[in-house]
Amino acid sequence: MWKIIKARIKQGYRTLKYPKEEPVFPERFRGKPVITGPISLEEVRHKEFDPTGALTDSNGSAVDLGKLLFNEDVKKVCLQGHLVYSQDYRMAVSKREDLILKNNELKLAYALEEKIKKIFGRSLRLREVCAGSCNGCDSEIQALNNVVFDLSRFGIEFVASPRHADGLMVTGAVTKNMELALKKAYEAVADPKIVIAVGACAISGGPFYGGKEVCNGVDSLIPVDLYVPGCPPHPLTILDGLLRILDRLEK
């Protein structure tokens, strides 16, 4: 008993001050990309470094965060190094088209409709469905429950059944083998309900985009209310998105 109490005192208080204080990320952290100079079509020569088409689909005039894998290699697409990553972790949006970064601006997620917000605003229960991820995003969602991020202090919790949930949090490109299970889980959630797609796979298929065994993302099957880009997204990127749709961040 004494040992446990001693350990408790030693461990101290470890929860982040977020959202009151902004978190600090290491220098190499790859957050929201920034285009520092003009990228013209002629410059986009090394298309092979952008297999998911995050930059090349728009000929370099925009970056699709839903397709971006936040990797280093993609920088090589721009010959003059005009693509860099910032330390900005805030990237979750409400609509798929908002994930297209133009002029380095992103329309971040906005609050749910007043009526729904009234129901979910102070207590949101989510059911997580992994539908063909690599377990990376799921590990970060799990990390939200640890003492550092302490998700439950915001009244958000993960529950064991879709019947107990207000919405789904989905990861993975949705494999053919998970299609039915995902649809059934969605139907089992009572209305009104929300769906959150976490990670590049759930948004666009990620590295598996175009594969024979996957459906290229969640919104090809069920409507999505919040998109959290990343591969995998940092827990704070997910948390930021959640707090935004619940209108819990001070403006």
Partner: peptide
């Protein structure tokens, strides 16, 4: 249920993409 067809994709994609697939075999 998690079958994404990685092995087959590794034979079809470029080496630049294959390394990204290799990173996504198991996220942990």
């Amino acid at each position: 249920y998690q079958h994404r067809g990685i092995e087959k994709m590794m034979e079809e994609v470029t080496l630049e993409r294959a390394v990204l697939l290799a990173e996504s075999v198991a996220g942990d």
